[in-house]
């Protein structure tokens, strides 16, 4: 099993570093280009939610992102010490509505659920754990 950890601060500019990191990870683990694109989307959505809505103070926080790859599954775990929030409980936006009637927002977690095969949430020791699994059997 391959494991890698990336630590980021709760600042939006950190996303640029994360993008570069994911590109390197994709090369190192020989992931397909569409898969790396999907992971980019998922990681950006999850991280944006945590950075923008996860903290109720102005302090600097560190968010841990663990990547694991056991050949047929890829796991991404986000660990933060922000306020307790379970994004899996959020209702999906109604995408059957016509485009002009569509609600704006709420698409982030929906995209994560669409792309990943499993989305789990746990609260342990005052920390949020968001665990995403993608089957990568080719």
């Amino acid at each position: 099993m391959n494991c890698k950890t990336l630590l980021v601060k709760n600042q939006m500019l950190e996303l640029n570093r994360v993008v570069a990191y994911l590109d390197e990870l994709g090369e190192e683990w020989e992931l397909s280009v569409p898969l790396v694109f999907s992971l980019n989307l998922v990681v950006e959505e999850a991280l944006t939610n945590i950075i923008l809505y996860g903290f109720d103070d102005q302090l600097e926080h560190t968010i841990e992102i663990d990547f694991k790859n056991d050949l047929d599954q890829l796991y991404i775990t986000f660990i933060d010490d922000g306020i307790a929030y379970d994004p899996t409980l959020k209702e999906d936006p109604d995408i059957s509505l016509s485009t002009e009637d569509r609600q704006i927002g709420g698409l982030g977690i929906f995209l994560i659920k669409k792309i990943m095969d499993k989305v789990e949430y746990k609260r342990k020791e005052n920390k949020n754990f968001l665990i995403l699994t993608k089957n990568i059997i080719v």
């Binding site: 694109f37 959505e45 927002g105």
Partner: peptide, 9 residues
């Protein structure tokens, strides 16, 4: 090269 949910929004 990339479209995220805030881009869609």
């Amino acid at each position: 090269s990339f479209l995220g949910s805030l881009g869609i929004r």
